[in-house]
Amino acid sequence: MLPLAIPNEEVVAIEHVILDFNGTLAVDGKLISGVVPRLEALSSLVTVHVITADTNASARSELASLPCTLKIIGRDKQDQAKLEYARSLGLGRVLAVGNGRNDGLLLKNAALGICLIQQEGAAVASMLAADIVCVDIKDALDLLLQPHRIVATMRN
């Protein structure tokens, strides 16, 4: 469990981190350098989930050795599929990270949502739905591994 003491709010007990794959953990279907050790460290604190439409059909092989649960979703209603997956875990215990339009509902409804703007860009609607925006997955994962950084970002 990862307790997040967000200023002016109750402590949020994050048990699950849901990550998108392409545009978030990977570019062109390949994991971004530096992601693996951070996911390994994070997995000792929370359950890591990767939910993806798997545009490049590489998520399974890229994530095979990592301690995470992979969920590949279909082509239709992807935003709803991601939200329903998070609901099954308990939205109040989920921190979500993504960049695409199909991540917007998840980012908005999770206890905390982080939108990434990396090489593949980010959907504006998802940026507006998120609580935090980062420009590098390593920075986003480091926020979780060093939660005092979230406090600095979220204080009012």
Rank of each mutant, 00 (worst) to 15 (best):
A140Y: 01
A110E: 06
D28A: 15
I18C: 14
G104W: 04
L25K: 12
L91D: 10
V36R: 15
V135R: 14
Q118Y: 00
L128Q: 14
R155V: 13
S33T: 10
L105H: 11
H148C: 11
L107S: 04
H16A: 10
R60D: 06
A123I: 02
V46D: 03
L128N: 12
S44D: 09
S65D: 13
C134G: 04
V48L: 13
H49F: 01
L106Y: 02
L2P: 05
N56V: 03
M127S: 08
N99Y: 02
L19D: 00
L105Y: 11
L141H: 04
E15S: 14
A111Y: 05
S43Y: 09
R60V: 03
R93S: 15
L42F: 13
L63S: 06
S61D: 11
L116K: 09
G92W: 03
G98Q: 03
A111P: 00
P67G: 05
A123Y: 01
I72L: 10
G121P: 00
D20Q: 07
Q146C: 08
V48F: 10
G34W: 06
L63I: 09
A13M: 13
D79Q: 10
L63V: 08
V133M: 12
H16C: 06
P67F: 06
A140T: 02
R60W: 01
V17C: 07
S65M: 09
E10S: 12
V151Y: 03
N99P: 08
I72C: 01
